[in-house]
Amino acid sequence: MRSKVVFRRLLRNKQARYGFIALLLLVALAYVGPYFGAYDWQEKDFMAFMSAPDADHWWGTTSIGQDMYAVTLRGMQKSIIIGLLVAVISTGVAAIVGAFAGYFGGWVDKVLMWGVDLLLVLPSFLIIAIISPKLRDGTWWWFVVLLAAFSWMITSRVVRSMTLSLREREYVLAAVYMGIPRWKIILRHIVPNLASLLIIDATLNVSGAIIGEAALSFFGFGIQPPDVSLGTLIAEGSRNATGYPWLFAFPAGLLVALVLSVNLIGDGLRDALDPGSNS
């Protein structure tokens, strides 16, 4: 069975194995870690402002007395969720748009690809930066939608070109001759056969989204206080990075670790699903 083979190959891949272990640990840290800390992330300890890491505040405290350990983990939770959501949404959109454009061809293809080109030339960072403060009172959901909206285009083009070759396959023709509606053919026969591409893409999109979130939040366009993410934490910490390194080092270090482990898995997946490519 193919999936078993892929799984075995994935396990044999050293990079992917380390990536998996690291990611599992990080996720566990983000979600289980807070139960072990002595403080809640919203709690303020008025006895300790900017205190260095010690036995009480493991990772130190912020300028308003928040426990750095609790806050950082909270930020990481948000970053992970945003990363996953953005990846799933953008890969899903890419798959649907690409497959429909490729399968239907004609004006559907033209319109969809025109949209893709348009989104590609728009400076996404700028637009998110302009729009997102306007949605300040909305939830961070908007932010996810915006990030996703600007990250699916390249993949959808790849999906489209692969669909062009898939639609000539005999099993697709067979489905047409059976009288199966076209949208069903796309969902049942085309998209699943692009699964390897989509899985790889989704994985790599996770790290892209995490970085994107952090970058935007760093400049204050992303997650808005009082909510925190790794990006906002890094932004705040960087101002005092030399004097109070713990404010910067912990969120930044976790961000790097997170992105790195996801990328390792993504590369491992690509090797396992698609042994021909050596990039």
Binding site: Y171, R188, N193
Partner: peptide, 8 residues
């Protein structure tokens, strides 16, 4: 081979 969807 080509006429049967390999994923089903």
């Amino acid at each position: 081979m080509a006429a049967l969807d390999p994923r089903m």
